[in-house]
């Protein structure tokens, strides 16, 4: 059951999206997020959706995986949409009850927020993390933030923590399952009773899990020291990040498309909030 977590996993491949420099991907993802929240034209969102579908197609991520990645956030999308409908009260009033008022602009905003969250997940959580190896992604984070080191920003440490966290997720998931089975074998009951009772039943899982995690941390630290780990100073990397033509092409296309989409904010057609 715990192995169903797909969000944030990497699926190796050789598509052009896989081959992009991870730093470029990080930059493009950032541009994408900003533009996503700047545009306010339904036609622009539809165009963006089509383009995202094209990128998913190029990246060879199976459609099933995209839908699987979206499933866990479905409830969040619905709730956000509903809240936003009541947030904007300008425009033509369609329905009113006490202090609640639904207007055309409110409905538009609700739809836009739902679209934004769905696109955000597809663009960042799915396209970015499914096509980039976690190591490359952490390398990129370290690389992009290293200029801020002189202001005391711990770029290397953060990247190293991400690497270790990613490395230990499957190990700890496996361990959790073992502990659950061991406790079940001793008669523990996780499936019946009130929420409070079920929450209490988790304690005998969490305690051994944390004890073992601390023990692992201790052993890993010694093993890292034995392999001459001394922080980020003077460290080299086996894989040197390099930008190539495909990266420049991707940057140019993204910037042009985004500029076009943003410019639609100032045009007279489409629906907007």
């Amino acid at each position: 059951m715990l192995k169903d977590i797909t969000l944030g996993q990497f699926f190796p491949g050789t598509s052009p999206i896989h081959r992009l420099d991870p730093r470029v991907k990080l930059l493009l993802a950032l541009i994408f997020i900003v533009v996503l929240f700047v545009i306010n034209n339904l036609v622009a969102y539809i165009i963006m959706g089509v383009l995202l579908a094209v990128v998913v197609k190029i990246s060879q991520i199976p459609l099933g995986l995209v839908l699987k990645g979206l499933k866990p956030i479905f409830v969040v999308v619905i709730i956000t949409a509903i809240l936003n409908i009541f947030y904007n009260t300008t425009g033509e009033v369609l329905w009113e009850w006490g202090f609640l008022r639904v207007t055309t602009n409110g409905i538009m905003l609700g739809i836009f927020m739902a679209i934004r969250i769905v696109y955000l997940i597809i663009g960042v959580a799915i396209i970015l993390t499914y096509t980039t190896s976690p190591i490359l992604l952490t390398d990129a984070v370290e690389n992009v933030f290293s200029p801020f080191k002189r202001f005391g920003f711990p770029a290397h440490e953060i990247a190293m923590m991400m690497t270790i966290a990613i490395r230990f997720i499957p190990t700890l998931v496996e361990e959790t399952e073992k502990i659950i089975n061991a406790q079940k074998a001793r008669g523990a009951d996780f499936e019946t009773g009130s929420i409070l009772k079920r929450a209490k039943a988790l304690v005998p899982i969490l305690v051994p899990l944390f004890v073992s995690a601390f023990k692992r941390a201790d052993e890993l630290a010694i093993a890292m020291e034995c392999r001459c780990y001394q922080g980020g100073e003077n460290r080299t990397r086996m894989r040197v990040l390099q930008t190539s033509r495909i990266d420049y092409v991707a940057i140019v296309i993204t910037v042009l498309v985004c500029a076009a989409l943003v410019s639609m904010n100032f045009m007279e057609f489409g629906w907007r909030a």
């Binding site: 190896s133 976690p134 190591i135 690497t163 270790i164 990613i166 490395r167 190990t171 692992r216 052993e219 890993l220 093993a223 890292m224 392999r227 001459c228 780990y229 001394q230 003077n234 460290r235 080299t236 990397r237 086996m238 894989r239 040197v240």
Partner: peptide, 26 residues
């Protein structure tokens, strides 16, 4: 315990960990 000595997820990345620490050229 081999699980508590491996630092990186991908095998060759892990093997590269020590020489990277030593500042060996790529």
């Amino acid at each position: 315990n081999p699980d508590n000595q491996i630092v990186a997820t991908v095998v060759e990345e892990d093997v590269a960990f020590a020489p990277e620490n030593l500042g060996v050229p790529p």
